[in-house]
Design a protein around this nucleic acid. Structure first.
Length: 601
RNA sequence: GGGGUCGUAGUGUAGCCUGGUUUAACACGCCUGCCUGUCACGCAGGAGAUCGCGAGUUCAAAUCUCGUCGACCCCGCCA
């Protein structure tokens, strides 16, 4: 780049007086110094208009050869994204040339002096929100992508969320306490990210999947109210709402039970929404049993912004002549349905499409019945249906003319998962969720089972995590019927997204040992992996519990984004790489040697 | 590990199904010049792509086939 040195000037004694977003009519007559990037230049030969951008907004600045020949000469050289400083007078725009689309559209700055602070090559893409740019390019030039107003808004919103959460919790007496990143690998849960230890050959740290154990130790240490906005690491495959490193709002409290957690969090969201959007959130939030969520919505994170609940038709078909249904029933399966009320001409293609969709959840087939005028109906399983069954279906589903009943018969888990997902897909396809109206539908899902059975490994697993307390009345089942035990775990669901989850913890050494045992963690292994916790539980551990929120997910929902990458400044790709820095990458042999590591590829 | 969508000038797309009248089109951006009230400024001219990469089929491949790489969505996985 030739002549660079001649063009670029020092900021020297100039001081910025205002941001580009703030000048209004009331500032007319003031001499101001603005600094920022050239968003666009409109050269009329004589007059030259420039939109100057900084993190606060845009201001139109005008170069008139009659005002300053020197400034006018200089500005002819500038291009998009040059960094400039200007000194000039705020003046009203000519009557009729005000721009109502700009907050600063009533004024402009008549420039007397300009300094070019830096030049810019032509960018790989434009800094505006109009064009959809591929993720590939956006991530490679993330620092440019982040210049776009939409990204600036998202990142600012995220900051505000964090700030207000901190304000709220600080005022409630919570302490922000840091916990280690280089910590110990624990069994159960997700795959760990591993860090080799140089000074301890052959040994490894694990990055924390969450600060779970440390926050419990902080309660035992007597801090009583802890929070942290903290990075967590899980080496699992990604999704639109899941990244390998993500941020949690992590909290823990002593001497509380579930109700205290609920009311504290509800109040926090009321505060947050009031501060951020001036929106009133109604409390208390709705609560729903895990079992009810599963049986009505097929998921533990139901979206209650629309109906279309799952209807159990198992009994209706108990004498079915349909072989497929008979088989399902004899294997203790279920036959359930959802009703599509919108009078939709479900075309053959649409039904094929749904057929394909449900198969991805392991369901084998989708049957349908469309109720028409009077007793008339149309069905994929018409020849297996008795008129009595038809009437029962009509009654159970309260189907009206034009409604379509979609039926899945399969193993219980598959039926619920499939219909749960089908429900969401149909709501989306049929536009049942009114997007134009911001709706925040909060829901506590409670009384999760403590354990589930892992068929492959032939053992119990913790539904939440191994430190979750059973319901008091279910403790007696620990010895007799572990799968029936309900836990003091809870999730907070917002518009069908799980935004947080937590539990009251076990603070009793004996119960903790028992739970470990049920999970197949014998005394020796428990000692080796969680010895420090079991030990700590012996020294006057207070009753305690807490909750953690997925901050990325929360920010995503509040920003109206479709992926958490939109609210993370420097996100990773689906293969957990960073296109900007090219991480992960190979390291020097010397580094590996220091770490006592040999590669085996 | 599996299924799907996508990959064409700097960017976003069209062309691909049905191979050859395509010298690969359009818009934005970029470069040069003109233009004193624009704000998606306007006008005139110009540069820029061996169609992700590799093999195959064919007289002929952006177009068909296979492989491979990358991005995204989903299943598995994520207490």
């Amino acid at each position: 780049m030739k002549n660079t040195k001649e063009i670029i000037e020092s900021i020297s004694s100039w001081k910025r007086t205002n941001s580009c977003g703030e000048l209004r009519k009331k500032d007319i007559g003031k001499e101001v110094v603005l600094m920022g990037w050239v968003q666009s230049r409109r050269d009329h030969g004589g007059l030259i208009f420039v939109d100057l951008r900084d993190c606060n907004g845009l201001t139109q600045i005008v170069f008139d050869p009659e005002e300053s020949t020197e400034a006018h000469q200089k500005v002819r050289k500038i291009k998009n994204e040059y960094v400039i400083a200007i000194k000039g007078i705020v003046v009203p725009r000519l009557p009729g040339s005000e721009n109502p689309n700009m907050p600063t559209g009533d004024i402009e700055v008549r420039v007397k002096q300009i300094k070019i602070l830096n030049i810019s090559e032509a960018l790989p893409f434009n800094i505006d929100d109009k064009l959809e740019i591929s993720d590939n390019l956006r991530l490679k030039y993330r620092y440019l992508d982040l210049r776009r107003p939409k990204m600036q808004r998202n990142i600012k919103l995220r900051h505000q969320i964090c700030m207000e959460i901190r304000n709220y919790l600080n005022n409630k007496g919570f302490l922000d306490i840091e916990t280690p990143f280089l910590t110990k690998s624990t069994p159960e849960g997700a795959r760990d990210y591993i860090v080799p230890s140089r000074v301890n050959p052959g040994k490894f740290y694990a990055l924390p999947q969450s600060p779970q154990l440390f926050k419990q130790l902080l309660m035992i240490a007597g801090f009583e109210k802890y929070y942290q906005i903290v990075r967590c690491f899980r080496d699992e495959d990604l999704r639109a709402d899941r990244a390998p490193e993500f941020t949690q709002l992590d909290m823990e409290m002593s001497f509380i039970d579930r109700e205290e957690v609920f009311s504290l969090i509800e109040e926090m969201f009321v505060y947050l929404f009031k501060k951020l959007f001036d929106v009133e959130i109604a409390t208390p939030f709705l609560k729903m049993d895990y079992q009810e969520a599963i049986s009505k919505y097929g998921t533990d994170k139901p979206d209650l912004r629309f109906g279309m609940e799952i209807i159990d038709l198992t009994k209706v078909f108990n004498k079915s002549s349909f072989k497929v249904f008979q088989e399902v029933l004899s294997n203790q399966g279920k036959i359930c349905a959802i009703k599509v009320e919108e009078d939709n001409q479900f075309s053959r293609k649409k039904l094929d499409d749904l057929q394909l969709f449900i198969s991805s959840f392991g369901a084998k087939g989708l049957s349908f019945i469309k109720f028409k005028e009077g007793k008339d109906f149309q069905s994929s399983i018409a020849k297996f249906l008795s008129s009595e069954e038809i009437e029962k279906i009509r009654r159970e589903t309260k189907a009206q003319q034009g409604n379509i009943i979609l039926i899945i018969a399969d193993k219980k888990e598959i039926v619920y998962e499939t219909l749960g997902n089908l429900r969401l897909k149909l709501a989306n396809d049929l536009n049942l969720i009114k997007k134009e109206k911001e709706e925040y539908n909060f829901l506590w899902v409670t009384n999760f089972p403590l354990l589930m059975y892992n068929q492959e490994e032939k053992r119990f697993e913790a539904v939440h995590h191994p430190f979750t307390a059973p319901l008091d009345e279910d403790i007696k089942l620990l010895d007799s019927d572990p799968l029936k035990i309900r836990s003091k775990a809870y999730d907070l669901v917002l518009n069908g997204n799980e935004i947080g989850g937590g539990s009251i913890r076990i603070h009793n050494n004996d119960i903790q040992k028992k739970v470990f045992k049920l999970l197949g963690i014998d005394d020796k292994k428990a000692e080796q992996k969680f010895g420090f916790l079991l030990q700590a539980l012996k020294y006057g551990a207070p009753p305690h519990g807490g909750i953690a929120f997925g901050l990325d997910r929360l920010a995503m929902i509040l920003a109206g984004a479709r992926s958490i990458r939109e609210v993370i400044a420097f996100p990773k790709t689906q293969k957990a790489t960073c296109l900007l820095t090219d991480a992960p990458s190979e390291v020097d042999l010397k580094q590996l040697k220091e770490l006592h590591i040999k590669l085996d590829l």
